[in-house]
Amino acid sequence: MTADAMRDAQDPWWVISSAAVALHGVVPIEVGDVDVLMSVLDALRAMDRLGVVPIKDGTSSLFRSTLFGRWETPPLVVEIMAGFHVATSAGWTEVLPRTRVSRPFDGRVVYVPDRAELSRILRMFGRPKDLERVRLLTS
């Protein structure tokens, strides 16, 4: 459903976090939701088409997005993020992958950062579950 919903995107988009780790073929991995990074314009169009209302206060002490919404129709919630940043020792740092690897899934294509970049992103997040995902990706 995510690949279908993103098919009209004009700019690159990526699945990150646990779903991206799973799409790299890592097992076992628990996937609680699907995190999608995309441009603000594509996120606005996708949310409008899907009936997703942007969440006004999607900021936490660790993450913030210019635009954030939760698509709750699929079996796994899809979190759509644009202008996504993580708090680091250097301040708020934008998460915008440079690599884009296509992965087939259920007859469709989804995109993820390559393993090395995904590991760097997860390390930047720094939570225990993210560091465990790094371990699984690199073992």
Rank of each mutant, 00 (worst) to 15 (best):
S61W: 12
D106T: 08
R100M: 10
A5H: 07
R100N: 04
G69Q: 09
F63M: 11
F84G: 04
S65M: 12
I121T: 13
R49V: 14
H24L: 04
R64G: 04
T99M: 00
L62N: 07
I16C: 04
V31R: 13
L67D: 02
D48R: 14
R120F: 02
L137Y: 00
A3I: 03
V77W: 12
R133S: 15
V95L: 06
D48V: 06
D11F: 05
L44M: 11
R127N: 02
R7Q: 08
S102E: 15
M6P: 05
D42L: 12
G126A: 03
G91A: 12
D8I: 09
L76F: 11
D130Q: 05
T2M: 11
M47Y: 10
R98N: 12
F125G: 09
S17F: 01
W71N: 01
A43E: 01
S17Q: 11
P97C: 07
L96G: 10
P128A: 11
V134I: 06
R135N: 07
E94T: 07
V36K: 01
G51K: 07
A82N: 08
S89C: 08
R127V: 04
A22F: 10
S139M: 15
S139K: 09
D42K: 05
V15N: 03
P74S: 03
V95D: 04
F105W: 14
S65K: 11
V15E: 04
W14P: 08
F105N: 02
R7L: 08
A20H: 08
S39C: 09
S60F: 06
R120L: 04
G83W: 02
G69I: 06
A43S: 09
A87V: 12
L37W: 10
P113C: 11
L76C: 02
P12R: 11
L136Q: 14
R98G: 15
A22C: 08
T59S: 15
P97M: 10
G107F: 03
L118Y: 09
W13K: 12
G51I: 09
S89F: 06
I55F: 05
D8G: 09
G126V: 06
P128R: 07
D130A: 02
L137C: 01
T2D: 00
L122W: 03
D48P: 06
V34H: 07
S119V: 06
R135T: 13
S61R: 14
F63A: 10
L76P: 00
S65H: 13
P74A: 12
T66Q: 12
R103L: 03
L137V: 05
D114Y: 09
R64D: 09
T66F: 01
A19D: 04
G91L: 06
T59I: 10
W71A: 08
P128L: 02
L23G: 13
P75K: 12
A82G: 15
F68K: 09
E117D: 09
T93K: 10
R115C: 01
V77P: 00
Y111S: 06
E132F: 04
V112P: 02
E94H: 03
G51V: 05
F105R: 05
L137D: 02
L118V: 12
A22Y: 07
V21G: 09
S139T: 15
F84Y: 12
I80T: 11
W92T: 01
S89D: 13
S119N: 03
E72T: 15
L23C: 15
P12C: 11
S18G: 11
S18A: 15
H24M: 04
L137N: 04
V36N: 02
G25L: 06
T138Q: 13
T138G: 02
D11Q: 12
G126P: 04
R100C: 05
T88N: 01
